[in-house]
Each structure stands twice: as C-alpha cells, then as structure tokens.
Design a protein around this nucleic acid. Structure first.
Lengths: 321, 321
DNA sequence: TTGTAAGCGTTATCAG
DNA sequence: CTGATAACGCTTACAA
C-alpha cells in the first residue's frame, strides 16, 4: 500500500504538500498540485482512514442503539438517521441490543474509546445513571423526553399523545379501552401508563389490568391479543395499539374470528405506516423519519448546547374507529 | 485523556509492559502487573481504539450492504450477522443503499481505506466488475451464487428453489402460475426468471408477462397485486411470492375482495416468517439467520481460501395451497 | 507557497 | 521478564 510519504517522493514534494492537496487546502501551486494528483492517480493511492482518525481524534462514525432492527418503528428512525448521516458524510455503527444492557454498554464504551463521534440511543434498557457516566466522553442523544437530563433529545410527548387518543375514543363512546405496548418497562410505557391512569380516573372508569397487552411488537403479535380478548367476559371495545403493524395483525385476526372492526372493536394504531393506510386503520402519525434526522443532527452538532426537540403527532382518521 | 505513556510513568514501568498487561500477554511479573493495574484504575484509562487500529491495521468493524433495512429478508440476514459479530467481538457498519450504486461504492471505499475489515454485500445494484475492482483490498462476501466469482459466498439456489415450488404447484393442478419479486434486475430475479421460463417451456404453458409482479417488498404491496389480478380476464390461479410479508398482504387483500385462498388463488410465500405461520401461508423456509452467520464468518475468516456455502430450502406446507 | 518535524496512542521487534 | 525504539500513516504548527 502506498502512503503519503511515497506520494511525496513520487511527486517530488513534501508530505505536507501532499496532505494539502488531499484535503483541498489553499496555498499549493498549480504545478505541484498536478504532480501530486498524477502520483495519486498512478499509484492508486488510498488514504488510511485510521491514521486520519488517530490524528484528528474523530471518526465520522455515529453509533445508533436500537433494541431490534426489524421493528418498523426503529427501522424508520434508522432510515431518517441514515439519510441525514449520508448528507453529512457520516457512517453509522449499528448496535442491535435486544434490550441487553451489556450491549448498550458496548456502545457507550465505543464512545469512550472514541471509535464513534456520538451515540444516538433510540431506546434503552439501562438506567439513566449508567448512561450519565458517559456523557463526558462525547455527545449522547436520547429519543425520549430528556428535558430533565443533561443530554440532547428528540421525542414525542407520549403522555399527551396517549391522553389525546383516549379522549378521542371516549368521545366516540368508548368506555372500555385497552392498549398494546412492546414492553412494560421503558420510558414511553411509563408515560402511557400515567396517561391511561389519569384518563381512567378522570372519567371514573375501571382500571382493568387485563386490558393492557404487553409484548406487542410485530404483526403476528396481534394474534395473542385477539385470543386473549376472546377469552374475556367483558372485552375492551377499543384498543390503542402502539404500532401500526400490530394493529394490522389485530385487525386481520379479528376478521378471522368474526370480530367486526370498528363495531365490536375500535382500533387506533401508531406511526401512520403504509400498512395502516392499506388496511384503513386510524392512526396517530409520528414523523419518525424526521425524528431520526434531528437525532442525528443533535449528535454531530458541534455546539456544546444541549437541545430538546418535541415532535408533533397528528391523528389520521380512517375506518377502524 | 491519559494514555499508555502516562500509565507507564505512573506505574514506574515501560510502555511495553503496560501494553503487555493491557493485552494480557504473558511474561509480566505479578508485581509490575499490579502496579499497572492500579494505574489504570486510578486514572480511569481507556485505550484510544483508533491508535490500536492504526497500529494493527484492523478495525474489528465489518461493513454490511443492504438495500433496505426495513425489509424482513434483510432484517433477518442482519440479525444473523449481528449475532455472529457479537460472538466474535466485531461491530457492524451499516450501509443502507436503497440500491444506489453511489452508496455501494462508499462501502467499497471504506474497505479500501481499511476502515472496515470486510464487506458483506447482501444485495447489490452495481455490476460485478465494479465490485471485482475492490477484492484486493479486503474480503468481500456475497449473498448470492458466487461460485463463478473469486469471492466467498453464501446463497440459496434460487433457480432450484423456484423450480421446486413451481413443480409443486403444477402437481397440485395449477397451470397458470404467476410470481412476485422485489425488482426485475438483480441476480436472484434472473435465476427465478430462468426457472420460470424453463418450467413454462417444459409443460408447454403460456408465458404471460402480466403474471410477473414487480416491486413487491412490503405487506402493503400485496394490494396492487390483487388489484391487478382483479383486472385480468384470465388471472393466475397460483402465485409464488418471494416474501412472506407480501404474501400476507396478498392474502389479506384477497379476503377483502372475496377471493378465496387457496380455492381461487393459491399462495406460496418465502422465508417462513412468523407472519406466514400466523396466517397459515405455505412457504419456503430459507434459513436467513443462519445465512447471516455464515456470511459474517466468511468475511472475517483469516484463511485466504474462497468458500461457497449453499443453503438448503424447505417447503412448509400450510393452508394457502 | 513550501517543507521539517513533532505529534496522535498503540503494537511489535529485538536486544538485554 | 523488561524496556528502548521503530513502526503505523496522517495532520499541523512553525519555520523558512
């Protein structure tokens, strides 16, 4: 492999000059520039990026922590992040954690070791103190309400979101409302749970724990939801489903079991994905791609300023309510 | 940031000794080891990984090229790759190319620049010659039949696979068979097309171009397929669908339109994903996660040997045929 | 406008 | 067992 010194020799100039033309710095005579360019051409030279990184203390690599890559919510977030990364000439290092704290630590470790310039945490299993230990090593950005924390964040207010949807269903006449989430722990579930509790209290409704369906991440998870509902003496008349894919699975299974949507069971999905449009599912639009972009920008933004971006949600009314 | 030289000073030893302790090399007296360990402890030392990379000429980063991250086929492949990467202490750099040749080039460029130790190409838009230019810079592994090419590969024989499925449908009495693919170009489509042609020829069937449905990647794409079928005077009686998700979309839409599965339209999906099981779709199982693992291992395998692994497919009979 | 030389933080060789 | 010291390949003061 030819290196910058070889190039210098070939072109009859110094390494500095080579470096300058490589990095398009000014103050290089046209003559020498051409010589260097010729040397580069003829030698098929390629800079060793690791040397650049060592020298600059920067890698143009940004870490992205997600629990699952094959979940539409995260896939869309990543898509947005990837788009912005592309535009800014960064590459992404993906950490699929499966909510394993060990793997989250690996990501934080890479930040500490400077192998990545920033770390975007889309969802996490680790407690905040664990992560807080690493904020001095590089920018960490959270995809959750981080206003109480000293890192940047982009998020939707899940409390407000849920409350809005619950009220909407209530206005449509529903009093027995359940909801589906991916996991019980996790900050968004916490906020949603609070919204649900407040809603139930406000309208003096029953808080029925069996109306909360956990582990709903994929289309096929809709099956269990319907199975459980069929077993209930007093099933919910409406369901908030935190992923359109799961909502689609529920609708599909409901049809199989002759449960009419929305007559027997109203459904509100989340994220406004194509599958929801196709199946006529009312949903709450969350601009995930846009969120991904913002997350990325917060990560690489050189300003030391910690910022917080709240994203707006929007109800898309279709035929499932 | 404290570095290895500071450590040496603190522990009263040489950098070499520190390095030895750090890398768990033998031949260090217990006494000095303890001193170094103490220094590491007290200084909150963290090695600069970029320096390690420069010195070793290795990054423990492996690049993965996929067109879309949010497509189940690739998501599963990545899952397998990620699992194996974890076990071998590698991290992944993800390239979501959207079948943009530019972005594929970026990935190849990173291989050339030694920022990644190997590149796994799960699917590509670039022609082979473009990629062949880079094989001297590091291991490239293909997820397609690479037996004619001088790089390692893990693949399924899409020709055999398709022919098998077509014959199966023929035996079940189908003579008007269509198929759905993600894109017309691409090596797998080429093989599938050949299988289809050979099949049609063998049984003296009509080769009806409108029986080939392109752009079928996601669940919602099933809608167009059904729409088109409804318009046909002589619609296919069976469909090979190269993704279970699309198959599920087709089945869902078919129900909506009162097309009975399998009476009016038989469906064979691909990949044996949970959604297919839930919806009772007959499918061809392809061990994608296992394939991912093998791809990864071929990438980091130090042996210079080029290897080719053909994976076996398996028909899973359910209720859609 | 150009070049020398000092880093950047490791690993590895080789002589003790 | 231990330690100088030379790589690794690039950037960047600083000097000219």
């Amino acid at each position: 492999m030819t290196n910058i010194r070889d190039l210098a020799k070939m072109a009859g100039v110094s390494v500095t000059t080579v470096s300058r033309v490589l990095n398009k710095h000014p103050y290089v005579s046209e003559e020498k520039r051409k010589a260097v360019l010729a040397a580069i051409e003829s030698s098929n030279y390629q800079p060793n990026i690791n040397a650049v990184h060592l020298s600059m203390g920067k890698t143009f690599l940004v870490g992205v922590v997600v629990p699952f890559i094959d979940h539409s919510y995260f896939a869309l977030l990543i898509k947005g992040i990837a788009m912005e990364a592309l535009e800014n000439n960064y590459k992404l290092v993906l950490f699929q954690t499966n909510y394993d704290k060990e793997r989250e630590l690996e990501a934080l470790q890479m930040l500490k070791q400077k192998q990545i310039d920033a770390l975007l945490i889309c969802s996490r299993a680790s407690g905040w103190p664990t992560i807080a230990d690493y904020i001095s090593y590089g920018p960490i950005v959270l995809c959750e309400d981080g206003r109480e924390k000293n890192v940047s964040s982009t998020f939707v207010d899940h409390y407000r979101c849920f409350l809005f949807a619950l009220n909407y269903l209530y206005q449509k006449g529903h009093q027995q409302i359940g909801y589906c989430i991916g996991r019980k722990s996790g900050t968004s579930s916490k906020f949603r749970g609070m919204a649900y509790k407040d809603f139930v209290t406000r309208y003096h409704l029953q808080h029925n724990p069996s109306y909360i369906f956990n582990h709903c991440n994929y289309f096929e998870d809709g099956e269990q939801v319907i199975e459980q509902i069929l077993k209930m003496e007093e099933p919910p008349t409406a369901l908030l489903v935190t992923s359109d894919e799961v909502a689609a699975g529920i609708v599909t299974c409901a049809h199989k079991q002759n449960i009419s949507i929305p007559e027997d069971l109203a459904i509100i999905g989340f994220n406004n994905q194509p599958i929801a449009q196709m199946m006529g599912i009312t949903t709450i639009d969350i601009p995930l791609i846009e969120m991904g972009r913002k997350l990325f920008l917060q990560g690489i933004n050189p300003s030391e300023q910690v910022t917080h971006q709240e994203m707006e949600m929007q109800l898309i009314e279709r035929q499932s309510v």
